[in-house]
């Protein structure tokens, strides 16, 4: 292998090491520490490879046990996965037609439409979610609009519905862009051929367009689902106290209980819960092809 080629291969590996493996190792070390009243507020057990034996001998899994024995954490994980999953499905239902419309618009219009999808990123997410408080609150814009139409007001703020609305809103661009990218590369003559052969529009979408867009749909779904599970701002601002999600649980452990090891352990388990099924899925997928 030439040096240049080696560098190209090494780049992603270095990136993964610096921005994934290293932080993960640091979190893992904190997760296996004891909470303490000190700066920083934990006492690590792992003190280097030369004292590995000592570390393994002194290892206790109290933190993991707390996590597994208290139903609160399982509930928080399940709730997060459920709400993130539901939001992802809704975002796909909105995002797919949107991406298709953009992909089929005239080439001069496309960059403008893409720009419009990205435009919300120019404002901080925090401010945009605060704006949703203004829309959803009891005397907010939504209920004012409903009132003008003679419809009864909706009590949405501080409910799960508000969290789902917030998640869909916040992550929709992440779903639209990969689907658009996939559709833009798809050959438009395939659909035309199907139309010429008398295939009705709905079947054309299901049998031609969606399979062509599938890599984009999957990328968009993962790109939204994974961060949405751990989302903190949206459930904190729009959700009620009944909506227990994992982001808020980590917050409580970190800030209220000052238990960094437990907070780190929750984050580790979340990573494993998300990464392991995706890796297994990929493996079976590869065996099939």
């Amino acid at each position: 292998m030439s040096p240049a080629r080696r560098l190209i291969v090494a780049a992603p590996a270095i990136w993964l090491f610096l921005f994934f493996a290293l932080p993960f190792a640091i979190i893992f070390r904190i997760a296996l520490s004891e909470p303490a009243r000190a700066i920083p507020p934990y006492t690590p057990h792992f003190m280097g490879l030369d004292r590995l034996g000592e570390f393994i001998a002194g290892l206790d899994l109290d933190t993991l046990w707390t996590l597994l024995s208290d139903g609160l954490y399982a509930e928080a994980y399940l709730n997060s996965v459920r709400l993130a999953g539901l939001s992802t499905v809704i975002a796909l239902l909105i995002g797919f037609p949107l991406a298709r419309a953009i992909a089929r618009s005239s080439p001069t219009l496309r960059p403008i439409l893409i720009m419009l999808v990205i435009l919300p990123f120019w404002t901080s997410l925090l401010i945009r979610i605060y704006a949703w408080i203004g829309i959803l609150r009891q005397d907010g814009y939504l209920n004012a609009a409903l009132g003008m139409l003679g419809l009864p007001p909706l009590d949405l703020l501080n409910t799960e519905t508000a969290v789902v609305i917030g998640l869909v809103y916040a992550y929709l661009p992440f779903v639209v862009l990969p689907i658009y990218a996939a559709l833009e590369r798809a050959d438009p003559t395939l659909e035309e051929a199907a139309a010429d052969l008398g295939c009705p529009p709905f079947r054309r979408t299901v049998e031609i367009t969606i399979p062509l867009a599938m890599p984009g749909i999957i990328a968009g779904a993962l790109l939204m689902f994974i961060p949405a599970v751990g989302e903190f701002i949206v459930p904190d601002l729009l959700g009620g106290s009944e909506t227990i999600m994992i982001g808020k649980t980590v917050w409580t452990e970190f800030f209220s209980n000052r238990d960094w090891p437990l907070a780190a352990m929750i984050a580790m388990v979340l990573t494993l819960l998300l990464a392991v099924p995706i890796m297994l899925w990929q493996r079976t997928d590869r065996e099939q092809t």
């Binding site: 893409i114 990205i118 862009l177 990969p178 689907i179 658009y180 990218a181 996939a182 590369r185 599938m214 890599p215 984009g216 999957i218 990328a219 993962l222 790109l223 995706i278 990929q282 997928d285």
Partner: peptide
């Protein structure tokens, strides 16, 4: 599909 998905992810990131 994951490799394809990764590709379209990179394309959209480039956008």
């Amino acid at each position: 599909w994951l490799r394809k998905a990764a590709f379209s992810l990179v394309t959209s990131l480039a956008l």
